[in-house]
Design a protein around this nucleic acid. Structure first.
Lengths: 185, 185
DNA sequence: GTCTATATGCGGATAGAC
DNA sequence: GTCTATCCGCATATAGAC
């Protein structure tokens, strides 16, 4: 057969994920994805209508990975311990897969979290904070926590601090947010 | 005269700043800057050795603007009030000039704040936090605050939250960080 | 000091052969 | 379903005329 089926959406997405992780968002081009699959760029259009669709799939995959990771590392029953496990896992992931993490977080996506994946991730975070503050729908608390975690991930990666690193700042922020939530409880 | 001097570094920088504000970082090209000055792109090389140099100037200008803005809006003597004024001014600037703010914050710049402008900005923030916690060199506190402010700016801009907005989350985070710092004092 | 012309490279996307 | 060929646009940067 001259042209057996060599592609499918999952394989294309996997290649795209690898490229983002290795080369950052700027490296994600249809040509690069195709090359990794030993295929030519136009073939990809049989599976994704355009580049934006592929980018959306990458973001959704990143959200899935984040949720899985947080779930896996959050095992404690005690709300505070569980919260700290979630926060730690969040930052660990941002360090381990920075390009993928920032690709998903920085992408100018109107309604980024109207996607099912984004909603699930948000709900998980909300549950951890809610268990802490005693308010199961503690939107404000979850926003504050998410802002801090993401901001910290950005600063940490920016290299703005010496080798000592901003680690002390992490404990400071988490303690502040936790003790306040406990006081609300 | 066939070719009187039409350019200077300040004018080029101003044009670059306008383009970033209007079109975002992706819109910043030498062609676009030159066009705004009614000049051709190669002429810019008489003033900036390459694009990276121009980008560095834009980042430094953004840091100067941030510091001026924070200074202008921070007038109170009371440390907590002063801190809240600084935080409010920070987020107001991020909302008013988002493209310029994020251009400076996101740019992968090793030693972004070894620049004089970055250092001055950091020192101002450190002083506001130090006045609050009673520790004039409260690096951890300043890191926590900066992380929260920047993270909040990102979330706010991402449109991840409904029209109600993440405002409540802002108060939550600031109150947590403030009351903790006061307790340390 | 500014210009034209050009080298060189990247990217997305489409038409049409096989 | 994949390919080749191509269109089109964008960019940084340089050489050399004026």
């Amino acid at each position: 057969m001259p042209h057996p089926k060599r592609l499918d959406p999952a394989a294309i997405l996997d290649a795209a994920l690898e490229i983002v992780e290795e080369q950052g968002s700027a490296g994600l081009s249809l040509r690069a994805v195709a090359a990794r699959l030993d295929v030519k760029a136009p073939s990809l259009y049989n599976y994704f209508p355009d580049k934006a669709a592929l980018e959306g799939a990458v973001i959704a995959a990143s959200h899935r990975l984040m949720l899985e990771t947080l779930r896996r590392h959050t095992r404690a029953d005690d709300p505070e311990t569980a919260f700290r496990q979630t926060a730690e896992a969040y930052l660990k992931l941002a360090r381990k897969r920075p390009a993928l993490y920032f690709f998903a977080m920085n992408h100018q996506t109107p309604g980024a979290d109207s996607s099912p994946e984004g909603k699930l991730l948000w709900n998980f975070l909300l549950a951890r904070v809610g268990a802490l503050s005693g308010n199961p729908d503690d939107t404000d608390g979850a926003v504050a926590v998410w802002a801090f975690l993401h901001g910290f991930a950005v600063l940490e990666r920016s290299g703005r601090f010496g080798k000592s690193g901003p680690k002390g700042g992490l404990a400071r922020g988490l303690d502040a947010l936790i003790s306040q939530s406990l006081r609300l409880n």
